[in-house]
Design a protein around this nucleic acid. Structure first.
Lengths: 131, 131
DNA sequence: GCTTGACTTCGAGTGCGCTCGAAGCGCCAG
DNA sequence: CTGGCGCTTCGAGCGCACTCGAAGTCAAGC
C-alpha cells in the first residue's frame, strides 16, 4: 500500500509535504531542469529526495516567491551544477535579482500609499455619514 | 493624417502616452468592463478620453500594479458605477486588498533576506579567493 | 478624388506557470 | 493470487493578462 521511504530519503509525497509544493510541481521542476541534479530513484523507479534536494527546493521556492522567472532559476541552477569557478556569475545573477525585487517593493509600496489615501477618503466619508 | 483630438478630450494614442498602457490594453480594459463607464466617441466612432477617464485608469493601474486580479478590479468598478450607497463594500474591498498586499510584501521581504544571506556567502567566498 | 495612416471591431494567439488525466507498473494486505 | 494504492511517464489543458493581426472606415493632405 504505502510506499516505504528508503533509508536516508523521502518519497515525493513526503517531499511535497515538507516543501508545500504539489507532487505535480516537484516533478515539473525536475523535468524542466530547475533541480540541481535529477533526484535519485529506487530500484522500482520511485523518486528519493535527500535533505540536499529539499534545501535546494527551498532556495528555489524563495527565488520563485520573489518573482524570479523559471528560466532564470534554470540559469542559476545550471551555474551551480557546472561546479566551481563561476561564483562571480552566480553572485551577479542574484544581485541583479535583488535589485529588481527592491525596486518592485518600492513601486508596490508607493502604489499602496495611494490606495491607502483612497481608503482614508472612504473612511472619513462614512464617518461623516454616521454623524 | 493625424486624428485631431476633439476639444476637452484625448485620442486613445494620447491616453496611451499619458497612462503608459498600450492602446490595445486600453481597449481591452474597456471591453472587459474595467472602466467606470464606456469611453466617449466622436461622430466617427473614435474614442475620446476625458481627464476623469485618465484618473480612473491611473487608479486601475495602481490596483493592478499591487496585484489585484482583473476580476476584482471589475467588481470594484461595478460598485463605483452603481452609484452612492455601497461605500462600505468598496471600503471593505480595498481594505481586504491592502491586507493581502501587506502580507505579500512581508513574505517577499523575508525571502529576500534569505537571498541576501546567500549573496553574502558568495561575496565572502570571493573575497577569500582574492586574498 | 486618391493616398495615407490612425483609428475601429472581432477573434485568435502568446507566454507563463503550473495542473491534470490517462495508461501502466510494483508492492503489500488479505 | 488478486485488489488497490501510489507511484511512474507523457502530453494535453487551463487561467490569467494581455497582445496581435486582419479587415474595414474615415478625415486630412496633396
Amino acid at each position: 500500500m504505502t510506499v516505504i521511504a528508503p533509508p536516508q530519503g523521502l518519497t515525493i509525497a513526503e517531499a511535497s509535504e515538507r516543501t508545500g509544493l504539489t507532487t505535480h510541481t516537484l516533478r515539473y521542476y525536475e523535468r524542466d531542469g530547475l533541480m540541481l541534479r535529477s533526484v535519485g530513484r529506487t530500484s522500482s523507479g520511485h523518486r528519493v529526495y535527500t535533505e540536499r534536494d529539499l534545501t535546494w527546493v527551498r532556495m528555489l521556492t524563495r527565488l520563485r516567491a520573489t518573482g524570479m522567472p523559471i528560466r532564470e532559476v534554470k540559469a542559476y541552477a545550471a551555474l551551480c551544477r557546472s561546479g566551481d569557478g563561476n561564483e562571480t556569475e552566480r553572485l551577479a545573477l542574484l544581485q541583479n535579482h535583488r535589485a529588481r525585487v527592491l525596486s518592485q517593493l518600492a513601486e508596490v509600496t508607493e502604489h499602496l500609499g495611494a490606495i491607502d489615501n483612497k481608503i482614508g477618503i472612504y473612511q472619513s466619508a462614512l464617518e461623516r455619514a454616521d454623524a
